[in-house]
């Protein structure tokens, strides 16, 4: 196996036959080992493509297990998500108002004490 053979083998694995240059193709025609590599590459690709048609049968209990896992509740719809955002925004507004009121009260109390002193 010479440097060119190694290079052809690497090209087949990374880019396939499309990656072979004209020079490489000429070498393949005259090199038994590289011809074998090309044939093996084609067989491998064909077999991998065939695998697309092969399906493993899932265990029979899968649908039941899935439906048990997701429970009886429904997925949040976009409308519900909007409602959720509204509730969060309202809660944030209330919290801000409460914090402002508390701070205001604290300031008033402080001033009242200062005047009293």
């Amino acid at each position: 196996m010479n440097v060119r053979c190694v290079s052809i083998s690497a090209t087949l694995s990374s880019r396939g036959e499309d990656g072979l240059t004209d020079g490489m193709e000429r070498h393949v025609e005259s090199c038994l080992q590289c011809r074998r590599e090309v044939v093996e590459h084609r067989e491998l690709q064909r077999a991998l493509v065939e695998l697309k048609q092969v399906t493993y049968r899932a265990p029979a209990e899968i649908p039941l297990r899935v439906m048990d896992s997701i429970g009886p509740w429904s997925v949040p719809t976009h409308a519900e998500k909007r409602d959720h955002r509204t509730v969060v925004a309202a809660a944030a507004a209330v919290a801000t108002a409460a914090a402002t009121a508390a701070a205001g009260t604290a300031v008033l109390l402080l001033r009242h004490r200062q005047r009293a002193a």
Binding site: T55, Y56, R57, A58, P63, V66, M67, V75, T77
Partner: peptide, 25 residues
């Protein structure tokens, strides 16, 4: 299924279970 229909999602599970399992295997 997107709107929360469990029956529809259950049917999608039955249709796609083998291909999902195959990929997982």
């Amino acid at each position: 299924a997107r709107t929360g229909d469990r029956d529809a999602f259950g049917e999608l599970v039955r249709i796609h279970q083998h291909e999902v399992f195959t990929l997982a295997v």
